[in-house]
Amino acid sequence: MKTSVFFLFVVVASTILSSCTSEENASFNFMAIGDVPYHLPEDFERFDRMIAQINKDKPAFTLHVGDIKSGHIPCSDEYYEKIKGYFDSFDEALIYTPGDNEWTDCDRESCGSYVPEERLDKLRQLFFSNDFSQGGRPIELLRQNKTEGFEKFAENSTWQKSDVTFGTLHVIGSNNNFDSGKGALNDEFYERELANNFWLISLFEAAKKNNSNGLVLVLHAGLNYNNKDENNGHASFVTLLRQQVQDYDKPVLLLYGDHHRFMVNQPMRDNNGKTLTNFTAVQVFGDNDIHAVKINVSPDNTNLFSIDPFYIKGN
């Protein structure tokens, strides 16, 4: 079994290398947003304003780290299709990874009393049904569902931009949909955990094989880097992430949402308590604060990434 899993890692990394051609090693910038829109209907106007100002700035692409609604808005097909329309109004590509509010919370009465896994299937059908991102100029993505054994996980993707490897991972808030209650089965969690951990290793392997200048990881959850409790739905992912970061000597940038407060920090430490200086986590704005984060990527920058708030006038 170990041999076959290692073989799959090599296959995925090689596929990423051959499918995502690198551009000239040049500077570029992109935007990151998430946890919007939440407050309806007023946030639709604010979201429109955000999109217009991002389009005016002309980033290479925009990332939405998840939560396209609050945990109390109905999880209807009509709402998802409306958000897809907003995503396609970005002039350039919009790459999206799901949050928890758009599927794990959908069993709430205020959300329509849906079966969460059915809503996740709907998201996959609507946003991840082909090999391209959303947005006015969609980019081609390599999706995990091209890998044998992970055909379900189209939302996990990767692409290459100017000698930087990017990847999305479906790791979410609400304890990653892990139910710590007695007798809970957690079938969905364990299946997605296996897929995410496999994809995480594949992304690091691809970055090494591509000789990338760095790696950008995109997910929703605000991770707890210190809690190894068996009831922590992020524990195995964080353990694996720490191992991979320590084995990679170039910058790693993690973009996430979940807690709705812009923050840049270096939260990961090694076994001796020293900060892993090649790892930076950036939490995007969200909820009442409908702003973006602008990331400039420059090979001339020792740290590769420069991170700045991008405030939306009127929001």
Rank of each mutant, 00 (worst) to 15 (best):
L120W: 14
K152S: 13
V264K: 09
D48N: 14
L223A: 09
E188C: 08
H291P: 02
R269N: 12
G167S: 04
A207R: 09
D187S: 07
F204L: 02
Y86E: 11
V284E: 12
V282I: 01
I95S: 01
V164R: 02
V297Y: 03
V218L: 11
E24L: 07
A281D: 14
E118W: 10
S19W: 06
I68C: 10
S18A: 13
Q246K: 13
R49F: 07
S19H: 15
S306Q: 05
K182G: 10
E205N: 15
R124G: 05
D35T: 09
E193M: 02
F305M: 07
I172S: 00
S133L: 02
L8S: 15
G34N: 04
E81T: 11
I295N: 03
T168N: 00
A93W: 06
V164E: 02
I95K: 10
Q53H: 13
V264G: 03
R242L: 00
D35Q: 08
C20N: 12
K82D: 05
G34A: 04
N231M: 11
D91H: 11
T277W: 13
G222T: 05
Q283W: 01
L240T: 12
G136R: 04
N210C: 10
N25D: 14
L123P: 08
F285I: 03
N101A: 09
D35W: 09
L94F: 12
M268C: 09
N55W: 12
D121C: 07
H64R: 08
F28I: 13
W103A: 00
E24V: 15
R261T: 13
I172K: 04
K2T: 14
N196V: 00
F305T: 03
D249F: 07
